[in-house]
Design a protein around this nucleic acid. Structure first.
Lengths: 159, 159
DNA sequence: CACGATCCATTGAAGAAGTCAATTATTGAC
DNA sequence: GTCAATAATTGACTTCTTCAATGGATCGTG
């Protein structure tokens, strides 16, 4: 006689069946929360967080972004970018160079030290990415990337 | 004579080609930032945000979550759940009921007013979801949902 | 049944992150 | 040259996050 098995499935299982679990915005938020936590933990050994890693990545990429461009791309307030760069510049990972084409603007470039740190941090970031992809069948990897890129408003508008 | 077309492609275009734009964690963060902003804007007319909407959704779903379960599911600190519920309870949208099975725990249930508001708010949330899906080909919708569900750690462990 | 360990909800404090208006320097349009 | 618009910065303010401590309830073990 199975004893009425109320099961009490750890709550989590119960909530997993709720309508909210079908809400894409929620799923996105939760996936992001998990990934962000993993990324911050992995980057901590380099004295970075996801945010500062992103800034360093763009600086090391020789794309020479202005602070305004950084703010827009990272979806931050310009004043937050100031603080973020201050932190990296204090560690000599990055330099502000006034844009010769527009002396109001600063362009961000990585120092050699910054580039070296970025290479190392990238490995940690890659590990997180692999962890994220581990649950997804390999043949879906490119598709996931593409879907996220469009959801992030960054897919190519077909040139 | 096309004048050397330095193009200066709005910066955004330039950054879009950076290595960071290929980083899944970053894409997830950016997609979430955009979606969250849209959701908060859409829910504002109901006096809700994404967070409070999520709590209300679970309450209205008769899944009777405890506060601890809410915290775990929404990836929040238990103390944040307290504040969130306080706000909803003040507006008489939800009620705390002590769990008869464990008098330490509160179980969250929606009032009739709360259910009615949720129905309305759900429409707004749905509009955001449609906006998110608009850029994705319809045949990929279910796949996107599935991918996000697994990235969010909520995919069924195959029963 | 009593004891101690554990768990739930709550509070409060400290710090990080986000929002916003005001300021300075520079640019571009006219 | 003047004037509106823009880039970066600062400061004030709010919200979010994180953490430790507390009181009440439960559970396991003896």
């Amino acid at each position: 006689m199975s004893p009425t098995e109320k099961t009490r499935p750890t709550g989590h299982d119960r909530l997993r069946g709720s309508v909210l679990a079908g809400d894409l915005s929620f799923l996105l938020a939760r996936a992001n929360a998990l990934t962000l936590a993993a990324a911050n933990a992995a980057l901590a050994e380099h004295g970075l967080k996801a945010r500062s890693y992103s800034v360093l990545a763009l600086a090391a990429d020789d794309v020479r972004p202005t602070q305004r461009e950084l703010a827009e791309f990272l979806r931050l307030d310009p004043s937050q970018v100031v603080a973020l760069i201050d932190g990296l510049e204090r560690r000599q990972l990055v330099e502000r160079r006034t844009d010769p084409a527009d002396r109001r603007a600063n362009v961000l470039v990585a120092t050699d030290v910054g580039r070296a740190l970025f290479i190392r941090a990238q490995e940690s970031a890659r590990a997180v990415e692999l962890g994220l992809l581990a649950t997804v069948p390999p043949e879906d990897h490119e598709r996931l990337a593409h879907l996220l890129r469009t959801a992030a408003g960054l897919s190519r508008p077909l040139p």
